[in-house]
Design a protein around this nucleic acid. Structure first.
Lengths: 117, 117
DNA sequence: TCAACATTTCAAGGATTGTTGAAATATGGA
DNA sequence: TCCATATTTCAACAATCCTTGAAATGTTGA
């Protein structure tokens, strides 16, 4: 991820509704959620949620796919991971102590990274 | 870091000049940089850089300290690390593969996290 | 104290972003 | 085909953010 993409990602995540959408889609996983379901759960108008979904899509943070009448959105884990990486590389430059806590988080959800069976 | 703080951090980092300031300060380390030096290196007017520094300060991403005539700014590694952690916890929810790449980055700059002497 | 330096504050203006509701588009079933 | 559902698009307006340059603040040394 280059600086321009990071900038776009930060901009996309800097709005409350959009951050909530991303968090919901991350929890939803690969199945994703339909635009209407997102709007209902967040109590936001369909047109407003559509506006924010387009914004997140432009930043590459989510993807979309028509499924019958609905349009189902999913989090783009690859880009999300790239953003973590960008932030870590930037804040790690000579500052290992920052990464240490990140490593702890990683260890707790990525068993493959540790020797825990 | 709570959602509100993350929102503020993302907003602060979503502006080119501010992102560049943070990256410079991270590289500068604990010594930090004076406002004037930042302005000169980024070729931005003093008043403009001051505006952005205030914004970054409000988000807690940087700290400041008067040093004689200059005001020296430093990156807040604690908050930066908290942001990485926030992003990781969000995007790790059930998705270990994202954290795996982050772990690699961490390993390369945090020797303590691995068994490399 | 005065002058020079380093930085911030302020007001004004322009640019971008977010919200709203109405109308348009696309899909599936009766 | 017609209707209901799901979503997007559009225009208008409001709100926020960024930039600029001039003036104010704080600091140091002569």
């Amino acid at each position: 991820m280059d600086e321009g993409q990071a900038l776009a990602s930060f901009g996309a995540l800097s709005q409350e509704t959009r951050l909530q959408i991303v968090r919901m889609l991350v929890v939803a996983g690969p199945d994703g959620m339909a635009a209407g379901a997102i709007a209902e759960k967040l109590d936001v108008s369909p047109s407003n949620v559509s506006f924010h979904l387009k914004e997140l899509d432009r930043a590459g943070l989510i993807g979309q796919q028509r499924e019958s009448r609905s349009i189902v959105y999913t989090a783009n884990f690859h880009v999300l991971g790239g953003l973590v990486r960008f932030l870590m590389e930037d804040c790690c430059a000579g500052h290992p102590e920052v990464c240490a806590s990140a490593t702890q988080v990683a260890a707790c959800c990525a068993p493959a990274a540790r020797n825990v069976p």
